[in-house]
Computed example of a mutant assay.
Amino acid sequence: MIEAGRVAVNGKVIDRAALNVTDKDRITVDGRDLKAPEPPRLWLYHKPAGLVTTTRDEQGRQTIFDDLPDDLPRVMSVGRLDLNSEGLLLLTNDGELKRKLELPSTGWLRKYRVRIKGRPTDATFAPLRQGIEIDGEKFQPMSVTLDRQQGANAWATVGIREGRNREVRRAMEAVGLSVNRLIRVSYGPFQLGNLKTGAVEEIRPRILRDQLGLKDEKEAAKPGKPRPQRTRRKR
């Protein structure tokens, strides 16, 4: 757009991108003022099983973006949950915030409720707590608690800090167990709580600011009305 002469700074058309600007400069594209970036916002979303966490799917499967409310602004997912996984997925309107939350150095604990086919004992999970290697890939130690046996299945709570592709499922398979339900219940300080399946709820600015180290209230948008339940789009 700059090469085409469509961008102007303070009324002067520019011909190079190597130009520093501040909030005081007026930038226009095709004669229209460039809007200031939206303040970073964050939402909790209870992803149902059966949706993919992508904008579009080559196989034509429904995505989480088909399920979100129409009045939600353009958002990106923080990390992913695979097709058959459900539970807490964070959504944000800010690419920098998304990258910050996904960085391994952030080290936030992700917790999952996991239903496993079989009758494992506490000792079954020892390799996972120590850190397991799968196909040459070293996994960091996980926290694993055996909660209860329920018929032919057992329930466990698993905590991880890396969030690799299908990490929990692959780790369980490595110790001879098959996962038939996977629910993420928390991502760092953010909890799924009683949020209903398919529901979206915005994090309040003060909480967002405290948890993520935002400088002041100008960096967080005013919250919309809580939206624990909403009407789905017609398909």
Rank of each mutant, 00 (worst) to 15 (best):
L195H: 04
S186F: 03
R80Q: 09
D25V: 07
V9R: 01
D25I: 08
G79T: 03
P205W: 04
V158M: 09
P37L: 12
A49D: 09
I134R: 01
G163V: 06
G50Y: 04
Q191V: 14
G11L: 10
P141F: 08
A18P: 00
S105F: 00
D122G: 07
K234W: 11
D122H: 02
L44N: 03
I64T: 01
P73H: 04
N93G: 06
R61L: 12
V29D: 03
L68M: 09
L195P: 07
R119G: 08
G163H: 02
T53P: 00
I203M: 12
R110S: 13
Q62N: 12
R235G: 14
D82A: 09
P189Q: 05
W108Q: 12
E102F: 04
W155V: 05
E167Y: 03
K222T: 14
V200W: 01
R32K: 15
N10P: 05
E173G: 10
N153Y: 14
G159K: 01
K111E: 15
A36W: 00
L81D: 04
T157K: 02
P40W: 03
T28M: 10
P127G: 09
N194H: 11
D82F: 06
S178C: 06
R115D: 05
H46I: 05
V52D: 01
N84K: 07
Y187F: 15
L182C: 07
L214T: 05
E38Q: 14
P223I: 11
G213L: 07
I183T: 13
T106Y: 12
E162F: 01
R6E: 15
V29M: 12
P73K: 02
N20R: 12
W155S: 06
R181V: 08
D15W: 05
L146Q: 04
A123H: 08
I134C: 08
E58K: 07
G107R: 03
R169M: 11
G5L: 09
M172I: 08
T121R: 10
K215T: 14
L101T: 01
V78S: 03
V75E: 07
R161M: 11
G60Q: 07
V78H: 01
T63F: 08
D67G: 00
K225Y: 05
A17E: 14
T145W: 04
G95V: 09
G131F: 04
D33F: 06
A126W: 00
G107F: 01
P37I: 10
K117T: 14
A17M: 12
R170K: 14
T157F: 10
G5Y: 04
D25M: 06
R119A: 15
P73E: 08
D94G: 01
R16A: 14
N10Q: 05
D67E: 13
D33W: 00
V29Q: 04
R148Y: 02
L42P: 02
N153R: 02
D71P: 02
D94T: 01
K12E: 15
R148S: 15
D94A: 03
G224A: 13
Q59K: 14
M172F: 15
R181F: 06
R119L: 12
I64K: 01
N194M: 10
R16T: 15
G60A: 09
P104H: 06
P141C: 08
V52T: 09
P69G: 04
V185K: 00
R204D: 15
E201Q: 13
Q229G: 01
R129M: 13
R206T: 14
E219M: 13
D30I: 08
I183G: 00
R209D: 03
G95A: 10
K117E: 15
R230I: 03
K138V: 15
K111I: 11
